[in-house]
């Protein structure tokens, strides 16, 4: 299983598409830095089935997005980020 991190806003459509294309069922996608804007409710993103979605809590809070996240997005703190890396066999950074 793979942990994917994505650090760009959803306006970077090609990056988001490449990231989602690369996801397999059982993978986790952690949205970090400007990637947390992908986690906003109402984003027209076709998330792949079987992929767990998380957003890095400090980046969500920094941008004032705490109450605006879609309901299918969990938050992870920095320790959670490390934990996710341990739980997956490889990590890919999409930037």
């Amino acid at each position: 299983m793979t942990l994917h991190t994505l650090n760009r806003a959803p306006s970077n459509t090609a990056l988001l598409a490449d990231c989602l294309r690369a996801c397999s069922s059982g993978d986790t996608l952690l949205l970090i830095e400007d990637g947390v804007y992908c986690a906003l409710a109402g984003q027209p993103i076709a998330w792949p089935a079987g992929v767990t979605l998380c957003a890095l809590a400090a980046d969500v809070a920094a941008r004032g997005l705490d109450s605006r996240l879609a309901s299918n997005i969990a938050q992870a703190d920095d320790a959670g980020f490390v934990q996710l890396c341990c739980e997956h066999t490889r990590v890919i950074s999409w930037y």
């Binding site: 650090n7 970090i32 830095e33 400007d34 890095l56 400090a58 980046d59 920095d78 320790a79 980020f81 490390v82 934990q83 341990c86 930037y95």
Partner: peptide, 24 residues
């Protein structure tokens, strides 16, 4: 990522701190 130009440089440092705090 270069510091100040991009947040990634700071994220890396925070990750390192969290990593070490967990005993890795």
């Amino acid at each position: 990522a270069a510091p100040h130009s991009h947040q990634g440089a700071e994220t890396a440092y925070r990750f390192a701190v969290a990593c070490l705090a967990q005993g890795h």
